[in-house]
């Protein structure tokens, strides 16, 4: 199952945190910052999987010999994807397919892109409720329930109109455009054809 779904930007500021088990706020923050340090030190061209952060690893990353049943219950993958200024992170157990998770993040971003039409970080900042709603249409209680783009978007729209970021938010407009372009560029780039 999926243990957590996180979104934060290039300076480690969280944009969405969703933990599928109840966790103290301070521990959540520690986990986020640990993952951020891992993710921000990735050399270009490395894979989309992170080693377990110290908080999750407990006994270091060297527990290759633990039995299969034990592994199924414990977070064992940290999958991430980087879009423009944002990092999308999924923490999951080994019952999830690592490559499919990469696709799942892609679906999520595409759904956001459809909802916001040319999504950028500012949209996510100001509409974090919609972020939660979109995620809620894809994952419930750590289990993936929907991967079809249309259904996800329809599900979110059924809950009410999705507003674009306030138009008068003028500051940093140029940067926004660039971010959006980044999203667009990535949006079409399918690495895995999981579906």
């Amino acid at each position: 199952m999926i243990n957590a779904f996180l979104v934060f930007n290039g300076s480690g500021q969280p944009r969405l945190t969703k933990f599928y088990t109840q966790l103290d706020t301070s521990i959540q923050q520690r986990l986020i910052s640990e993952i951020f340090t891992l993710v921000s030190n990735r050399p270009p061209g490395s894979c989309n999987f992170l080693p377990l952060p110290p908080l999750l690893a407990a006994s270091g990353t060297s527990s290759s010999s633990s039995s299969a049943t034990e592994q199924n219950d414990v977070p064992s993958f940290v999958t991430y994807r980087n879009y423009a200024t944002l990092f999308f992170i999924v923490i999951s157990t080994s019952t999830e397919s690592p490559l499919a998770l990469i696709d799942l993040i892609q679906v999520y971003v595409e759904a956001l892109d459809r909802l916001f039409e040319n999504v950028c970080e500012l949209d996510l900042i100001f509409n974090f409720e919609t972020l939660h709603a979109t995620l809620g249409e894809m994952i419930v209680g750590g289990v993936v329930i929907e991967t079809g783009l249309d259904r996800i978007v329809a599900g979110v729209r059924a809950q009410g109109t999705v507003v674009k970021r306030p138009v008068n938010e003028g500051r940093g407009g140029s940067a926004m455009g660039a971010m959006a372009a980044g999203f667009q560029g990535m949006g079409g780039n399918f690495v895995w054809h999981g579906r």
């Binding site: 599928y20 521990i27 999750l56 006994s59 633990s66 414990v74 923490i91």
Partner: peptide, 12 residues
């Protein structure tokens, strides 16, 4: 540590 792991964070 292994024992702890069973009770680890995010563990259901």
């Amino acid at each position: 540590a292994k024992k702890m792991k069973q009770q680890s964070l995010l563990h259901v």
